[in-house]
Design a protein around this nucleic acid. Structure first.
Length: 706
RNA sequence: GGGCCCGUAGCUCAGCGGUUAGAGCAGGGGACUCAUAAUCCCUUGGUCGUGUGUUCGAUUCACACCGGGCCUACCA
């Protein structure tokens, strides 16, 4: 039992970026944070769950432009979608704001002044490539060209994947903008920087000794950043940019990563205003210490921002430092990175359309142990575990015993259960400690062990025999069932942070609302029991198949392709589209892959299909699926093409064969070299085999298909 | 190219310097029939990725290698 005064906790999840929908990877974070907050509230602590949409940056600007609408319109729509997804998964924020709001602008200004006052801001020229056609400055990965060192073509602006050289985009030979394909020009622009090095001493101390960071994170920071001078942080972007204009630097905007974490503050401020609370009481450390704990839950990809820049900003501004930065790993599905072609890139909405969200909450909880390891959602495992644990063990306990109490209610005093209830009650503090430490897997294990004991008890006492034995056994039957139902209720208390809806429904059948963790300490006696209702339906393989099928449908053209298997939320507004192999399981080719949207003859003629002769074909030893082909388009024109047909064709059998290639496909840098086209082949979604297309005899290399 | 994480039973994971390495699920056998083909009991199964080193002692620590996953921001 906790005798101490209630704790005050301000808890955040990373702000989801307004450029994409919530997917199962994001939910690892939001679900685990929500469980933490619900747990704290159940324990009687004062906990506030704060989040917001992250709305600024180049990606939003470009997308709004391409969709012909305002940024505000875009982010408002996305916020609505995010909130609806979170609601569906019972993620209950105390406040969900937006970084594009007046409060955030005001607080950005205040923090900015603090940074100035601390003498941390410097101004410096930066040479950067500018795309005159698109009218924007180009981040390195938006520039491609020839490597100045090894002459490899089609390299990104910062480094060469062929020879490993690193350079500035301005050094590239024949640089091109990937936005417009136009020729970028070098422009010099002034940027503002935060001199993080001036905070080095503070960061050494805070990261290594505050206790806010797990050892692996602290070690990582010590080994990779704190061992040398910290680099200045470029915090401004020249117009055009979607964000807040810097008051004392007109024409320039705060970089999205400056205003995003300040969104935690702004969202708290708006929550405080709406609930008669004081912002200062939560973020301004008082002399005697307010006792507030700030907890940030983040994915490991954004560790850098939350453990160096953010604490430095808070420190400079005289604000409360985080008590804990909880870093988690990424989600894989069926052991692999989420993939659209495999149907495992699953949006929150798609899951909600087909499968019980609380089952996913439970499954995640059963696998989250507070470390930074990746978490695997094996869908077969998911079905087995959700059904076995939740339906078979927990709900079954009520399902098999409540019926005998509808008439009589619970026994007037709690019967002798051989110490079962007391044992599970005693374990309450251990389970609580596991929840508090973020080791949800351990908490779930302990809960399931208690459920096992309860089921064994029912088996041993055989209430069904007592039911048949008539009036003489009625009292014992009532006692046995009362024990089972109390053990069930106790489990519901422990499980309530993970499965709030289930707990609520169960509470409606017997005992009333679960209000406190300590409800698990005292058995219910003498109260009424309503007829049992099936509290949870089993998850079926068909539901999972439906999710995969729905996730496999091609996304609308306006949809960007978030390239993350994580809850990554920001910082990479500039994701490229992922290149994914097409190998998905499902029946009948036409059913599995419906016809694409209608296109015009003009669309078709944009694709230049040519007959080609394979000159050579060789294995790429390190590649799982690729063969390296050299094909002739007639005359001296040859192309090197990496084709994903390894395992389906023997290289030797391909030589001299006529095939069809897409001759005007943009060259694609692949791990093993540059691919200058694509060999056309037939394959079915879910069907085995890749079948090359060959022309009739008489066709010549270079002939066009029309 | 750089970096991080992980490799323990068929699967998902726990253990992390010290007696015969654990759990759940799956598999095998039995029991029960109240329950959403749920539950209970028994049971098969592992040279703890490989190699060196440190140590009285290594699954546990260090290094290397192999394999897998992930990140890579104008900043790693």
């Amino acid at each position: 039992m906790h005798e101490t005064a209630p704790r005050r906790l301000l808890v955040t999840s990373a702000l989801p970026y307004a450029n994409g929908h919530i997917h199962l990877g994001h939910l690892v974070e939001y679900i685990q944070t929500d469980i933490f907050v619900r747990f704290q509230k159940l324990r009687g602590n004062k906990a506030v769950y704060i989040c917001a949409d992250d709305t600024h940056g180049t990606a939003i600007m470009l997308r709004a432009k391409s969709e012909g609408r305002s940024e505000q319109d875009l982010i408002a729509e996305m916020q609505q979608a995010h909130r609806s997804d979170f609601d569906g998964f019972h993620v209950a924020f105390d406040h969900y704001g937006s970084t594009d709001c007046p409060t955030n602008r005001r607080l950005c200004g205040e923090i900015w002044q603090s940074l100035h006052a601390a003498g941390l801001i410097v101004r410096r020229d930066v040479q950067q490539l500018f795309d005159p056609t698109a009218g924007v400055f180009l981040a390195d990965r938006f520039v491609k060209g020839t490597c100045p060192r090894c002459q490899a073509a089609d390299q990104y602006g910062d480094s060469c994947e062929a020879c490993g050289a690193t350079y500035s985009p301005a050094d590239l030979i024949d640089p091109r903008s990937t936005l417009s394909d136009g020729l970028p020009e070098v422009r010099s622009a002034e940027h503002l920087f935060v001199e993080l090095e001036k905070m080095h001493g503070f960061l050494d101390e805070w990261t290594q000794r505050s206790g806010a960071l797990a050892a692996p994170i602290a070690n990582y920071l010590a080994g990779h950043f704190l061992g040398e001078a910290l680099r200045d942080w470029d915090i401004s972007r020249p117009a055009p940019y979607f964000g807040f204009e810097i008051p004392d630097f007109p024409g320039h905007y705060w970089y999205v990563w400056f205003d995003a974490p300040i969104g935690y503050l702004a969202s708290t401020a708006d929550w405080a205003d709406a609930h008669g609370e004081s912002f200062d009481a939560w973020w301004k450390p008082s002399a005697e210490g307010t006792g507030v704990e700030i907890h940030h839950f983040i994915g490991k990809d954004i560790t850098y921002f939350h453990t160096l820049f953010w604490p430095a900003m808070l420190q400079a501004a005289g604000l409360q430092l985080p008590a804990g930065v909880h870093v988690h790993g990424f989600l894989t599905v069926n052991g692999q990175k989420m993939s659209k072609s495999r149907g495992t890139f699953i949006l929150a909405r798609t899951w909600l359309d087909h499968v019980d969200p609380e089952m996913l909450r439970y499954f995640y909880a059963s696998k989250i142990s507070g470390g930074i390891d990746d978490l695997d959602l094996d869908l077969n495992d998911f079905v087995a575990k959700a059904n076995a644990d939740i339906v078979g063990k927990i709900v079954n306990l009520a399902s098999r015993t409540m019926r005998w109490l509808v008439e009589s209610g619970l026994s007037a005093s709690y019967p002798d259960d051989g110490g079962l209830f007391a044992r599970a009650a005693a374990e309450g503090e251990d389970i609580a400690a596991a929840y508090d430490a973020g080791d949800l897997a351990r908490a779930m294990r302990m809960i399931m062990q208690a459920a096992d004991r309860a089921n064994a008890f029912v088996d041993e006492r055989q209430p069904w025999k007592l039911a048949k034995a008539g009036p003489d056994a009625a009292a014992e039957l009532q006692d046995v069932a009362s024990i089972a139902v109390n053990l069930f209720r106790q489990l519901m208390v422990y499980l309530a942070p993970v499965m709030p809806a289930l707990a609520e429904e169960a509470a409606a059948l017997v005992g009333g609302p679960i209000l406190a963790w300590n409800d698990a300490q005292t058995p219910l006696v003498g109260c009424a029991v309503k007829p049992f209702q099936p509290l949870k339906a089993r998850v079926t393989p068909e539901q999972i198949a439906a999710v995969l099928a729905a996730s496999q449908q091609s996304t609308p053209a306006s949809e960007t392709s978030p390239n993350q298997a994580s809850s990554k939320t920001k910082g990479s507004p500039m994701d490229d589209t992922v290149e994914t192999p097409a190998d998905a399981p499902s029946p009948s080719p036409l059913d599995a892959e419906p016809l694409a949207a209608e296109c015009t003859i003009d669309d078709f003629t944009k694709v230049d299909l040519r007959v080609a002769r394979v000159l050579s074909a060789e294995e790429v030893p390190e590649a799982r699926k690729l063969l390296k082909l050299t094909v002739s388009l007639g005359g001296d024109t040859t192309r090197t093409i990496f084709a994903g047909i390894k395992g389906h064709h023997e290289p030797a059998s391909l030589v001299d064969r006529l095939v069809v290639v897409v001759a005007n496909l943009a060259p694609r840098k692949m791990k093993f070299g540059l691919s200058e086209g694509m060999v056309v082949a037939a394959s079915g979604e879910g069907a085995e085999g890749v079948f090359l297309i060959s022309p009739d005899t008489g066709a010549l290399p270079g002939m066009r298909l029309r």
